[in-house]
Nucleic acid binder design. Structure first.
Lengths: 345, 345
DNA sequence: CTGAAAGCGCTTACAG
DNA sequence: CTGAAAGCGCTTACAG
């Protein structure tokens, strides 16, 4: 394999290495003649820049690290949230989007806060020029402190809308509160009142989904039954257990708002065992991207996050210097409204 | 943030930069005295090697590139196979396994064969020190030629067992033929004879699953009905359509062996629309890792690939110089046998 | 607009 | 065992 460097290209094109560099980097101060000569040679012989040399010479390395925070006390449920197709799709979209700008994605997990030091190292050694952090619990001090430093980091669901206004931290939020509000309203519109909520963990998205539920209930003057509110840590199995719990109570819900896909699978399993039909006996609305596997006869109504947009905005926030450092993503409504409309009391 | 280089450390420790480098890299030919002096300074002032400089000087980074081949003529079905939790879990396992050896995972897609050049470039510029290639069609010349070069690459499902014996290419195979054989045999044991097959694409795993089906049928002296064999390219939607096709024929199958999860979702959707119950009307057996989302009342029997092992072996093959360059993985049987046992004719 | 040259921070023959 | 020096392949003032 012959490897061409700027030196080779320069010689072949009859110009200096500086000029080759200028052409490659699309600098304006080069004559059209030389631009053509250099490009012709590159097209003929092929040339790919050495990114390490580039980085060493002062240009940022074109690697973005995707940092998946997954610090779980209960090690059995490791990567509960990440194992969903939601995450899968996001990663693929991220790769595709980064590719457009000739960036590469390094994918990493943090199972322990001490591993955050490795991320700093990667910045400090110029291995990466940016990072996207996803999956942290709300209010995590270590992550907040890291992010508040000068590193080029985009955080997903780190700060509330309010907090976001008074900081320079780059952050992207899904409109979880609004999405949850709409999701619950959809149930309410169909005359449901006994609406249970199966929530996630301490991530901001969970908190917002919970708030959206509460808001919708209050808004409709429905008294909130504390026995209808369960936490299942984005775990399928916990959601299964909590659902069993829900229906072992005297007062049973007619609908459940589940805070993500994975838990919805647990809910379905439980309802199945209890011989409760969806949506005839129980209507289900969820937030996530599970249309992928719910579109198989399961009558689930799903509010989806636009992952393409999430990937796009993440990259944009990292690469372009924008005045606005915060983004909000809207949730999309999955067309198949499969909620059972209740009639009378 | 003050950044120390080998030059700074050398001055502070009163040694040469060469010696600092030797200490950092744990070379044997340094006196204990200088080792201590350098390490003391590093501990006191902090030092992190610049990875770009290192790569430029000839040392490869501790980075393994995961290359996901997804060359689809039908662009609508992009990443059909990769969007399954199967793949998700594999990536997570891979990160965890690499972490044990202080390696990082760069994740990348190849949507176009010309992009393989970028992989070569990543090797040639020392950005990466190894790669894992997954998802290619069987018999792809370009990939075979790339892999046959001196690069440190592990391929997954590139070569048949036979081919594997006469090559130095590092490759890992799932025992797909055997798994498919067992899967179909399970149906046969339950007296099924009208067994349909919904297959994937031109990947080796697909080919082997098809062969396993044929072998099981022949082995049981069941005449193969060509109308029962459908190809659905690992696409949910195609599987849906092919299933509708299957049951619009006069002769209908009593069971289906589906070559992966995603397609199984399409099959389920079709059966649901056709009002056919699983497994009462149709038994389903599949190969993949869908226990994740099938464990919710859907009576699917699943043969799973051990992804943890796949990740482990991939890393081992890349990092350790082993005499044996090929590995075979066995498929695990998902305990829930949910096949309907047929009686009489 | 263009080129010669310095410099980025490492590693590694080479000479001792 | 140790250091001076060259070299990896870029980019970027600098001078013209």
């Amino acid at each position: 394999m012959v490897k061409f460097t700027t030196k080779d290209i320069a010689k072949l094109a009859g110009v200096s290495r500086a000029t080759v560099s200028r052409v490659i980097n699309n600098y304006p101060n080069v004559s059209a003649d030389k631009i053509k000569r250099v490009n012709d040679i590159i097209n003929e012989y092929g040339y790919l820049a050495n990114s390490s040399a580039r980085a060493l010479a002062g240009k940022a390395n074109n690697i973005i690290e995707l940092v998946i925070i997954d610090i779980n006390k209960d090690s059995k449920e490791e990567f509960a949230g990440i194992k969903s197709p939601y995450f899968n799709t996001f990663v693929i979209q991220l790769i595709q989007e980064a590719k457009k700008f000739d960036y590469l994605i390094l994918i990493n997990t943090v199972n322990n806060l001490s591993e955050l030091k490795l991320l700093e190292n990667n910045f400090n050694t110029n291995l990466i020029s940016g990072a996207i952090i996803i999956g942290m619990e709300y209010g995590n001090k270590e992550i907040y402190e890291l992010v508040a430093k000068e590193y080029n980091i985009v955080t997903i669901d780190l700060l509330t809308e309010e907090e976001t206004k008074s900081t320079a931290i780059k952050t992207i939020n899904s409109k979880d509160l609004e999405g949850a509000f709409q999701a619950c309203n959809l149930l309410i519109t169909n005359n449901h009142k006994e609406i249970a909520y199966i929530g996630g963990d301490n991530r901001l998205s969970s908190i917002n989904r919970h708030q959206g539920y509460l808001k919708a209930m209050k808004n409709a003057n429905i008294k909130i039954n504390q026995n209808f509110i369960k936490t299942a840590n984005y775990s399928k199995n916990l959601a299964y257990l909590k659902t069993i719990e829900l229906f072992s109570q005297e007062k049973k819900p007619s609908a459940i708002f589940v805070a993500n896909d994975i838990m919805t699978l647990g809910v379905i399993k439980a309802l199945n065992e209890l011989n409760l039909k969806i949506p005839d006996d129980v209507s289900i609305v969820t937030i996530d991207n599970g249309d992928f596997y719910f579109d198989n006869g399961l009558k689930i109504t799903n509010f989806a996050i636009n992952l393409n947009l999430l990937a796009q905005e993440s990259i944009a926030l990292l690469l372009k210097s924008q005045s606005k450092k915060q983004k909000e993503l809207t949730l999309e409504f999955n067309p198949g409204n499969t909620i059972k409309k209740l009639v009378g009391e």
